[in-house]
Design a protein around this nucleic acid. Sequence first.
DNA 1: ACATATTTTTAGCTTTGCCTAAAATTTTAA
DNA 2: TTAAAATTTTAGGCAAAGCTAAAAATATGT
Lengths: 217, 217
Amino acid sequence: MTLAEENYLKAIYHLEQQFKNGVSTNALAEEMNTKASSATDMVKKLADKNMLTHIPYQGATLSEAGRICAVKVIRRHRLWEVFLVEKLNFSWDEVHEVAEHLEHINSDKLVDELDAFLGYPTYDPHGDPIPDKEGKFTYIEKIVLAKSEVGATYKCIGVDDTSSKFLKYLDSNNIGLGTIIKVIHKEPFDNSLKLALGDSEIVVSQSVAKNLYLKKI
Amino acid sequence: MTLAEENYLKAIYHLEQQFKNGVSTNALAEEMNTKASSATDMVKKLADKNMLTHIPYQGATLSEAGRICAVKVIRRHRLWEVFLVEKLNFSWDEVHEVAEHLEHINSDKLVDELDAFLGYPTYDPHGDPIPDKEGKFTYIEKIVLAKSEVGATYKCIGVDDTSSKFLKYLDSNNIGLGTIIKVIHKEPFDNSLKLALGDSEIVVSQSVAKNLYLKKI
DNA sequence: ACATATTTTTAGCTTTGCCTAAAATTTTAA
DNA sequence: TTAAAATTTTAGGCAAAGCTAAAAATATGT
């Protein structure tokens, strides 16, 4: 698998969560920041390699081989993110770009030793699960903050949007993985939420609340 | 700089140690495991980018910019080798291939944090010096075992040949960086050497002796 | 010195992955 | 239901980095 092929597989894997019945060329092109014609080219190449099935004008669906390959890339990406944050003092908004490169180094020894060195982590710094050597994910039931109950207490376990802007916003409001959050009030007018974090209170907008994942505690 | 360009710059830098008056196209092609015509193409491209000067039919010489770029790649390569050996349990014959990939990830934060994480090492697992952030090397005077004095005691500080075969040979004879070696006898017939390593004695051929670097102690 | 050998360069082709423009297909909506 | 809009594919090109084969320049040997 070339670098470009791996990136396409990862993108298709990602989009399949959303579009269960095949990933459209346009959606794929957008995810890859490229043009539809390029996406078509690559989809055809990947179909030739039996990494996916493609019905023209309909969409692409990963084969088992394609899924395995995508999950391996995701495993590498997320393990490197843990390494960067825990060992090299990266903050969670800085890791993505570098991990995009590291994820393409395909050496079983490298990845498995890195996994062991990090203590077999099951979640990356954004709260996304890290597949194990066999490709198995550990799932935790995630509640999105926007659908939380007033009065309940939660732990922050992940984010949906991993853009630098959003992660910096969270940092500046002292929200990180593991942060304990109590929902004080929900404003019916704009769906903003008043939260208690330790002894301070903050108000977050609905668009923030839609991107924060919690676990009830 | 693309991946291929960086590899060529590294190769030219390496060959310049040997061929002070310009690196020939053939030598470069051989170092890169490619054909002379491909080397010519790349040399022209690098000359256009002011990374080197090229006199047709004569040879190529790195510019200051080219040297800086090559040294950066070497720094990254050697730091990752240290990481692989010290943190991920790689042996010194396994590191090269993976480091060839890692060396091309160009992030100052990544490299400088890695350097700090490793404790600012000055030598890689083969005894080659690691340039610092400013590109400065720490040099130690190296004595090649083939030119050692009978009766003297040395510490192993590096190898010339870094092939897997040679490194595995050294491992199987319990020779590594830091090993203390006393030269017991030099056989005039074939220039083989009898060495004392701790309380065992071994005999090594001249071709081994030409590839081991020592420091007198 | 001059023919031959070696080295280096040039010319032209391949593959990968992207692009634009145009054609084909499917969807939407009047 | 049929014309317009949107989506997808095809066709043809481009740049990078490699290749082979042939031409040009330099080196060598007698």
